[in-house]
Amino acid sequence: MILDAFLCGVDGVLILGCKDGECHYVTGNMEAKNKIGMTSRLLKIIGIDQNRIYFGQLSSAEGTRFVELVENFTKRIKEIGALGTEIKEDKEELKFRLEAAKAAVEGEKLRWVIGKKTEFMGIGNKYGEMFTRHEMDRFLDGLIMDEVAVREIQLLLQERPLSVKQISERLKIPSNRVLRYIAGLRRKGVVDMERVDGTSPLYRQL
C-alpha cells in the first residue's frame, strides 16, 4: 500500500495510528508499526530517504498534536525534495526499484516474518527462543536485503535472459553475490539456464 503510493508518485506518506494499548483491534497498531518499520528499512536499502514515511501515534482528542505532526511532516518532505532526488538515475530506475520493493513486501517471506515479530519478542518462536530487538533487526536487515536483490533479479529476468555479469552490472551488486542468488533460485526451480552465450550462461525466469 505504502509502496503503491510511492509508485503513484507521492513524495511522502504519513500514517497515523492509536497510541500503544489503545487500539480498537487490540494489536492492530503494533502490527502497523512493525510493517511500517520494515517498509522504511526497505526504502533505505533501495536508496530512498526513509524519512519519507512517518508513523505517528496519537489519540482522537489530541487535535493540536495532529496539526503539529502534519506540519512537521510536510516541512520534512519539503526539505528532502521530490521523490527520486536521492537517486541519481532516471525515473525508470526509481520505478524499477519500487516495483522490486513492492514485490518483496508482498512476498510471503517478509509478510510472515514481520507478522511474527511481536510474537518472537514476547513469547518466543517455535523453539521457545525469545529474540532481542537487536537480533530481530539484524535478521530483518539481512532478509530485506536478500529479498530486494532477488526480486530485482527476477524482474530483470522476466524481460529477457541475462548472464550473472550483466545482472551484476545492471544492479551494481557484486557478481559473486548475484551468482549465489541465481544458484539459489535455480535450485528452487524459479530460474533456469536458457543457453550459453560465448562463455556466459544466460538465465531466465521460469
Binding site: V164, K165, S175, N176, L179, V196, P201
Partner: peptide, 17 residues
C-alpha cells in the same frame, strides 16, 4: 553441486576456458 553441474567461476559465473 552449487551450480548444478555448470563449470563456472565463483566470482562472476563465467565459464573459464
Amino acid at each position: 553441486g552449487p551450480y548444478g553441474g555448470l563449470l563456472i567461476r565463483p566470482f562472476d559465473g563465467e565459464m573459464p576456458r
